[in-house]
Amino acid sequence: MDNDPDLSLGLESIYYYKGQKFSGKMKSIHPNGTVRITSFLNGLEDGLTLDTYPNGQTSAEYFYQQGKRIGTHNGWYENGKARFQFSYKNDLADGDHWEWHEDGKVYRYARFKNGTNIGTKVWRKDGKIYSNYTYSPERLYGVVGSKLCFKLKGDETNQKTIINP
């Protein structure tokens, strides 16, 4: 991909080969040795994009339709344990998004609806919760290093602790 002078990237992330919108599979090799095979249709990512470690084991799989992320995207560590699982609908994050530490313990959980983050929790490697946030259109509620959001003493607004109002 990087060495082919006939391949070019145009406006709106459309790929061209010899001046025509590219359809087919593109192979790229990342500096860490990971190989990516990306499917294209009419210049846009379409279908499965697959990453593999140098040993041939699957590193990640992503799905696209007319250049937009769709479905469930999964990633794995070299030890075979899950690394991430994200879901998309029409190129927007939608549903549960999970990330794990290499030892298999949960690192991060986030919930999205139509591209908007509704809430996020992050855990330390020792399993203790590091942060717990709930989002609303106006504010971010939560605290770093706490297991639960809580009401501040004397706060008569009945709001939870606010970070970055």
Rank of each mutant, 00 (worst) to 15 (best):
Y77W: 15
Y77T: 03
Y77D: 03
Y77F: 15
Y77E: 04
Y77H: 13
Y77G: 06
E78R: 01
E78A: 06
N79F: 01
N79W: 02
N79T: 04
N79K: 04
N79H: 06
N79S: 11
G80Y: 05
G80A: 07
K81R: 15
K81V: 09
K81Y: 14
K81T: 15
A82H: 12
A82F: 11
A82M: 14
A82K: 14
A82S: 15
A82W: 06
R83N: 15
R83P: 02
R83F: 09
F84W: 11
F84K: 05
F84P: 00
F84T: 05
F84A: 03
Q85D: 09
Q85Y: 00
Q85P: 01
Q85T: 14
Q85E: 15
Q85G: 13
F86E: 10
F86A: 09
F86D: 10
F86N: 10
S87A: 11
S87K: 08
S87C: 12
Y88I: 03
Y88D: 05
Y88M: 02
K89G: 00
K89D: 08
K89R: 14
K89Q: 14
K89V: 07
N90T: 03
N90P: 00
N90Q: 13
N90E: 14
D91G: 13
D91M: 07
D91C: 07
L92W: 04
L92F: 09
A93G: 06
A93R: 10
A93V: 01
D94T: 02
D94N: 15
D94R: 02
D94W: 01
G95A: 08
G95C: 08
G95F: 10
D96S: 15
H97G: 13
H97I: 05
H97V: 08
W98V: 05
W98T: 04
W98I: 05
W98R: 06
W98D: 11
E99W: 03
E99H: 07
E99A: 10
W100K: 03
W100N: 08
W100A: 05
H101P: 05
H101D: 08
E102P: 09
E102T: 13
E102N: 14
D103Y: 02
D103I: 05
D103K: 11
D103G: 12
G104N: 12
G104S: 13
K105L: 07
V106A: 12
V106M: 12
Y107E: 07
R108Y: 00
R108C: 01
R108Q: 10
Y109R: 06
Y109K: 04
A110R: 08
A110K: 03
A110M: 11
A110D: 08
R111F: 07
R111P: 00
R111I: 03
F112W: 13
F112A: 01
F112K: 02
K113S: 11
K113A: 08
K113T: 04
N114E: 13
N114A: 12
G115C: 11
G115M: 09
G115A: 09
G115I: 04
G115N: 09
G115H: 10
G115E: 07
G115K: 09
G115D: 11
G115P: 12
G115W: 09
T116K: 08
T116H: 06
T116Y: 04
T116F: 05
T116Q: 11
N117W: 01
N117L: 12
N117Y: 02
N117H: 00
N117V: 10
